[in-house]
Design a protein around this nucleic acid. Sequence first.
DNA 1: CGTGGCATGTAAACGGTTACATGATTTA
DNA 2: TAAATCATGTAACCGTTTACATGCCACG
Lengths: 201, 201
Amino acid sequence: MPCNRTSYVILGILSIEPNKSGYDIRKAVESSVGYFWSESYGQIYPTLKQLAAEGLIVPSKPASAPKKRRQEYSLTNTGRACLRDWLATPFQNDPPRNEFLLKLFFGREAAPGVAIAHVRNLQQKNEQMLATMLQIEAFAHAPSTQNPHQPYWMLTLSLGIALTRAAIEWGKSALEELVSMDAVGAQDPQSAEVGPAAGKA
Amino acid sequence: MPCNRTSYVILGILSIEPNKSGYDIRKAVESSVGYFWSESYGQIYPTLKQLAAEGLIVPSKPASAPKKRRQEYSLTNTGRACLRDWLATPFQNDPPRNEFLLKLFFGREAAPGVAIAHVRNLQQKNEQMLATMLQIEAFAHAPSTQNPHQPYWMLTLSLGIALTRAAIEWGKSALEELVSMDAVGAQDPQSAEVGPAAGKA
DNA sequence: CGTGGCATGTAAACGGTTACATGATTTA
DNA sequence: TAAATCATGTAACCGTTTACATGCCACG
């Protein structure tokens, strides 16, 4: 009866590939869902104990090298059922927290070049991210891997690519706008009403 | 010397419009940066005390109605300097946590219609969000409001619009793909049935 | 007079990161 | 044998949400 997301991430990873240790799971999270999720050891190890106590996973020693100080886990049937239940319930995304947008929103208060620097910084990160995502996509298009999960993985990847591309396009015009604002010149701060958004029905 | 983001959000809001209470600040956050930030009373009220103790804001009674049980605050010079310092330092966005993408990633484990339902759910949310954002944009284009902050606010808005549009476009093709996957799966006698519950090693 | 909104706060619980501690195993 | 990496775990701390408690004020 877990309710925290860490549990489900672990169950999900183990549903794809059993016999993983806490260490493995962390690596797997990083390299698979790393662009939209993360887990730390401080979460993983206690949660593994808890899941085992609840019977959703079972510990086992590695068959190949049973002497190693290494504890592997696999899904039980109830664990798999639990994962499926969670998958079938509506998602609820966390309230977004974007420090970049926050600094841009208050950008008027800062020195003229500050917002520009932030946008350039974001552009750089996004371009790098796009490049690696495209690499992954290209690699996945190779006909070698026939994996039943692949279509779902590709969908998450293509959303990432689409969003990053949109952000980069936005960044280009935002930079133009900010540069032209700088050229026009700075004015002294005044109070005004706080906006926008609000519509607030 | 604050370092938590709540402090800076409060300073930022007060930099735009002084003489706000904790209650006001919460409303202002919701209606201005609400699409990419949020603060709860449990954060705001203690932080206000702390900021006042540090001399970054000053409490005052409302001039119009000094009898009201209401504590307003305004920025001090050091408070404004502190805000500016923070604005000038590089942003670092939180590791993203997207439950939708998580459920999509593990979608193969669920019943066939589950991923489709999630995407449709997301589409609906995004379309509604886009509509309200466009409304705000239209409203802001009215020549009435001449506000020095407006260009920065509009930039955050236009990023929101761009990202949401991209997500909606992605959603359309994702739905097509998922529907066709379902159709193929239904035809294929072996992969049609249960997922990896019985099989899948 | 009662309801709903304004307004301020606090305590508990939760989720999560970070830093630390420890030691085994592999490889150079 | 030294260094890197595999591997497990814990304790402290931080940020955040939630639920709760309180009471004022305006309006019908």
